[in-house]
């Protein structure tokens, strides 16, 4: 393994993915020649309209599906390599949209223990891992509660803890806040940022809420199965018109900056947050 591959968490090499249909002419090409990599410790946001290929990509990362053409490498393992299937799934955990579909046990701490139990982790170590995972998502106080009594944000944090207990290096979040109220969304986003910044975990965050990824290291924009833009949030979101054209949006502060510039106000075009907007307007 070269230095170069050691730095890479995920590598996607010229991937094409086709959902077959009985009638071949109606095959759906979900990904069409996608090529990129994600470095260890990076926080990458992936955006694109419904049907652009985001979730297909997420399933490829986790070896739930396999490329029709090309290869996906997770931590140096090719996802097509059946022998390393469990290494791959343990390295790259996934959190989905609906918290109710991800919780399996009747007590919070049993739910968090489910993953490591299946990996054959010794009981004493499971105990330690569960406690640590609940501490990271700040849900220790709820260890003995029933999951159905929790709020949406709390359930989603338990789902994250369940992944953490398997000690992954990378977590893929597929629209984890889509069903949450504002406080639930705040809780989950705080947890995600903490995992990346304090625990140095690689984070891939797929979302329709542009404000959630203004702090990402990099954003990948998908359209019709292809990468159409890639770069820092500042360089991506200033393309207000181009993003709207492919059915996307920009954070409210970026849109406001764009509107003010159109009115002749001299203000940066790469403003993302309220702080930046206050600074720009109050010089």
């Amino acid at each position: 393994m070269t230095m170069e591959t050691e730095k890479k968490m995920i590598e996607v090499q010229n991937v094409r993915f086709v959902y077959p249909h009985n009638n071949e002419e109606e095959n759906v090409i979900a990904l069409d020649g996608v090529d990129f990599h994600i470095n260890k410790g990076e926080f990458v946001g992936i955006i694109g309209h419904n049907g652009s290929g985001k979730s297909t990509l997420a399933k490829l990362f986790n070896a739930i599906i396999f490329p029709t053409q090309g290869d996906v490498w997770v931590n140096g393992f090719n996802t097509k390599d059946q022998e390393h299937l469990w290494d791959i799934r343990q390295t790259a955990g996934m959190v989905f949209q609906n918290p109710d579909n991800q919780l399996v046990a009747t007590i919070v701490e049993d739910d968090v223990a489910f993953g490591p139990e299946n990996l054959g982790v010794p009981p004493l170590e499971i105990r330690t891992r569960v406690d640590q995972a609940l501490a990271i998502v700040e849900m220790q106080a709820y260890a003995h509660q029933k999951p159905h009594q929790l709020s949406g944000g709390q359930k989603q944090r338990i789902a994250i803890a369940g992944i953490l207990a398997m000690e992954p290096e990378c977590i893929i979040f597929d629209e984890p806040t889509a069903m949450l109220d504002p406080s639930g969304r705040r809780e989950v986003m705080t947890t995600i940022r903490k995992l990346n910044q304090d625990k140095n975990m690689t984070v891939i965050h797929i979302t329709h809420y542009m404000s959630e990824i203004i702090g990402a290291d990099r954003i990948i924009v998908l359209d019709k199965g292809k990468i159409v833009m890639e770069g820092t949030p500042e360089t991506i979101f200033k393309n207000v018109q181009a993003l709207k054209k492919i059915g996307l949006d920009v954070p409210p502060m970026t849109e406001l900056a764009y509107e003010l510039r159109n009115e002749g106000i001299n203000i940066r075009d790469n403003i993302l947050s309220i702080d930046e907007m206050v600074e720009a307007l109050c010089q």
Binding site: P182, S211, P251, L256, C282
Partner: peptide, 18 residues
């Protein structure tokens, strides 16, 4: 009570100082 206001509303409050 676990809610919020739109981002621009937060902005207006911050701009009030200036």
């Amino acid at each position: 009570i676990g809610l919020a206001v739109p981002e621009v509303t937060y902005l207006m409050r911050r701009l009030k100082k200036k």
